[in-house]
């Protein structure tokens, strides 16, 4: 019970800190501007405004691009997480408090996830606009958002780990981006590999590969297990890195 209350205190602190900085608003504005442009492009490019067409030609590529753009944005959202705490010695304050390492880590993770959800929220206007033309496949919309949130969770866990590794924000963002790009490119390796087993294994390791099902409106436990374990492993590594600083 106490752990939950401490988590809530830390989460609220993180949230207040995040929304006090202009970074969130700048990134949200930039993200919405890009998404708006892409949405306009896909709608204009779509020849017929039928339900299947809108899903295939507008929403699937739009959500796919959202997912891709978050690959760049997530490291920017997490790059300050531990670095600022180390720079201001506030990590000592948190470590001395009754809060455990995991409460500190999870509060940062869920705060970043909330900020990502805040950035995603304005994009809900796109399916609403399409619904005025008769689009009503809300299952695909729901699963796509769920897929994006799950993918973003993976990106943020990598970003958090990168911020525990260094004392420089730029190095943190770049190293997180490089790791994520590596996981993304695995899907390409999987496609070109002639060996079925290697191809399946490499595909399974790739984050975008697991998003494909969500984009089609299919929620599989297979993908969910991957997302949870991917985020879990990187959060565990972050915890281990933070703990090793005390040794």
């Amino acid at each position: 019970m106490q752990a939950l209350s401490i988590f809530r205190i830390l989460y609220m602190k993180e949230l207040k800190e995040s929304f006090k900085t202009p970074m969130v608003y700048i990134l949200t504005g930039l993200f919405c501007f890009l998404m708006g442009g892409l949405f306009y492009n896909y709608v204009v490019g779509s020849q017929e405004l039928t339900k299947g067409n809108l899903s295939l030609n507008v929403l699937v590529p739009l959500f796919g691009n959202m997912n891709f753009i978050f690959l760049f944005l997530a490291p920017l959202l997490t790059m300050r997480s531990y670095i600022d705490e180390k720079k201001n010695s506030t990590i000592d304050l948190l470590m001395m408090s009754p809060a455990g390492d995991y409460s500190i880590l999870l509060s940062k993770f869920f705060c970043s996830l909330t900020v990502a959800a805040f950035m995603l929220a304005p994009t809900f206007i796109f399916p609403i606009i399409l619904s005025t033309s008769g689009y009503d496949d809300w299952g695909v919309v729901f699963s796509s958002y769920l897929g994006i949130i799950m993918s973003v969770g993976c990106y943020l866990s990598v970003g958090l780990m990168a911020s525990t590794l260094t004392n420089n924000q730029i190095v943190s963002a770049i190293s997180a981006f490089v790791i994520l790009l590596g996981f993304m490119l695995l899907v390409v390796v999987g496609r070109v590999s002639n060996n079925f087993l290697v191809s399946q294994m490499v595909n399974y390791m790739s984050v975008p590969y697991h998003y494909e099902g969500f984009a089609r409106g299919v929620i599989r436990s297979y993908d969910m297990v991957f997302y949870f374990s991917f985020s879990g492993i990187f959060l565990y590594l972050s915890h281990k890195i933070v703990a090793s600083r005390n040794l």
Partner: peptide, 8 residues
């Protein structure tokens, strides 16, 4: 260095 959150 006092552990302070400068934007609070």
């Amino acid at each position: 260095n006092p552990p302070l959150y400068l934007n609070m």
